[in-house]
């Protein structure tokens, strides 16, 4: 049993490290790729993917960290995205652990809700209320494409995190002592 616990602990550490690496990679990608087209908000699907693979508390922490990275990338008020993503991640994790199935369709739905919440609040608080976008051009040319590409990028991340969780997830029952006993 001790060997199994040790193996699970090492799996958890590797999983956390890979997730943190994915987070930082997404952040660097968002900051450095310059394009005339809208870029995906990679950190949102990142947080939702982690939420679908972890327990609610861990999901909330991942969500908060992703949110802080997102605030930095968008030059937004520090904490705004963190609060949004912390709660959406926690709710996603609770739903997946108790009510919903863990499949790609449910992921797309939850990712879309998270992207909509974040993008909507960003647009309303930073552009709409100040009257910077009377013709809704920023909404249709930046926020809508960003919403779509973020969800598409999310599918890739979902598959990737699935592979990581399968490889470094919970250790199966048939492990060493169980097999011998």
């Amino acid at each position: 049993m001790e060997l199994k616990a040790r193996k699970e602990r090492s799996h958890m550490i590797i999983r956390v490290l890979i997730f943190v690496f994915l987070m930082i990679f997404s952040y660097i990608l968002m900051l450095t790729v310059s394009s005339t087209a809208a870029l995906p908000s990679m950190l949102i699907p990142c947080a939702i993917c982690f939420a679908m693979r972890e327990q609610p508390m861990a999901a909330a922490v991942y969500g908060m960290v992703c949110g802080l990275f997102l605030d930095s990338a968008y030059n937004m008020l520090p904490g705004l995205s963190a609060v949004i993503l912390m709660w959406t991640s926690m709710m996603c994790s609770l739903l997946v652990n108790n009510v919903l199935r863990k499949n790609i369709f449910n992921f797309i739905c939850m990712d879309a809700v998270a992207c909509f919440l974040h993008g909507g609040l960003h647009y309303v608080l930073y552009y709409y209320v100040w009257g910077y976008d009377p013709d809704k051009q920023i909404l249709f040319r930046i926020f809508l494409p960003e919403f779509i590409v973020s969800n598409i990028a999310g599918i890739v991340l979902y598959i990737l995190t699935g592979i990581i969780t399968r490889r470094f997830g919970a250790v199966s029952e048939h492990y060493i002592e169980e097999r011998n006993s």
């Binding site: 900051l31 809208a38 870029l39 990338a73 968008y74 030059n75 920023i138 960003e146």
Partner: peptide
């Protein structure tokens, strides 16, 4: 050192 992501006003 950094450009704001998807900022239409290039801050």
């Amino acid at each position: 050192i950094a450009r704001s992501t998807n900022d239409p006003f290039a801050s």
